[in-house]
Design a binder for these strands. Structure first.
Lengths: 192, 192
DNA sequence: CCAGTTCTTTAACTCAAGGTACAGAATTTC
DNA sequence: GAAATTCTGTACCTTGAGTTAAAGAACTGG
């Protein structure tokens, strides 16, 4: 056909994701990307078209990997409440341990880009949907197992837990210690 | 002493707040501010020093007015759960009714600036504190009134409700209808 | 009404964002 | 091996961000 690429676009998207995650969309310059990916500007624009297009690919990648990871954690064996607490605690610890305090790319993007980038908003909406579904399934399982009051609406519980995660990942960006998030987790698990 | 300002700096801060709120920090240019405030660039920089300094003033203003408003709503008479539902519903309706879907300036700023602007982070932390306190007071009142299980930790409940609000205001930015937020509110109120 | 001060206006300056153009290099197909 | 295609690297371009400078205007105290 023609000359093959000297870099792997999939790896490049991963690297771009890291940059966007750390700096945000607007604060990331083409030069930042070129530096991080180790390729020339020509290759960058030839391969991805625009900063925004590359960002969208990175965001989709992020969404898929994160959603998958969450579902996996929630599907581990054991009592439902324990699994929920484990998942929330793992998230909190991850965010607090990150030296850059980047939080969640999806959350950050919702705040920075949802108003102006409809495609990004769509990606994010889909992520909220999937997260809600995962928590709803967990809640329903808890009800079947007798751990959660069967009179409650599992869909509402799913939305609530999704919302809790969103809040926590934002709060984690300015939290100075684990206390605030620990209280959130405690009260949330006790609410079921 | 000297020539008086031809504009009111307090009003200017309010107008700047609107611009930052709608566009975000990075996407707001000095020109945007000059246009919105109706003053010259010279006056702008003479009065406020820098874009960042003006932003901080606007953010503090936002925090104070919002925190005050929330406390006021929560202190209305009536059953605690009803007041909580009323406050959450009012927030959701406000955010959804906003044609620009700007969400909450504080939430947006946490995502966009907390990592790089320590002063802003401090302002935001203070806002979380105050919000937590307000909800904690509400929870304690609910316990005294017999509406809420006295065995639960009011501080944890305060943190949870604060976190719920943060999450909701973020989710509101991409919500397409009231359903998701309504479910969050229902499940949250039912959790007490 | 002059001095001293603080405001406004206009112009300018530097730097970089975000992207394009183009020449040349690498590959496959025939 | 030439043609066709696609990649890479460098250079370049336009626009505007964020700020500063300079000169004059408006005000108060004496």
């Amino acid at each position: 056909m023609a000359r093959p690429k000297e870099f792997d676009p999939e790896i490049a998207v991963d690297q771009a994701m890291e940059v966007f995650w750390r700096k945000g969309y607007a604060a990331t310059t083409p030069q930042d990307l070129v530096d991080a990916l180790g390729i020339g500007k020509g290759s960058l624009y030839n391969a991805f078209g625009s900063k925004q297009a590359l960002f969208l690919r990175a965001l989709r990648r992020y969404r898929d990997s994160q959603t998958e990871a969450l579902i996996e954690v929630l599907e581990q064996p054991g009592p439902v409440k324990q699994r929920l607490r484990g998942a929330l605690t793992a998230l909190a610890e991850m965010d607090l341990a990150d030296p850059d305090h980047r939080g969640c790319l999806a959350v950050n993007t919702t705040a920075e880009r949802a108003g102006v980038d409809q495609e990004a908003a769509e990606v994010l909406r889909r992520m909220l949907d999937r997260t809600e579904e995962a928590f709803q399934a967990l809640a329903a399982e808890g009800q079947r197992a007798g751990e959660i009051d069967p009179g409650r609406d599992p869909a509402a519980l799913g939305s609530m837990l999704m919302n809790t995660v969103v809040g926590m990942r934002l709060v984690a960006r300015i939290a100075q210690g684990p206390d605030r998030l620990t209280r959130v987790i405690d009260a949330t698990v006790d609410s079921l």
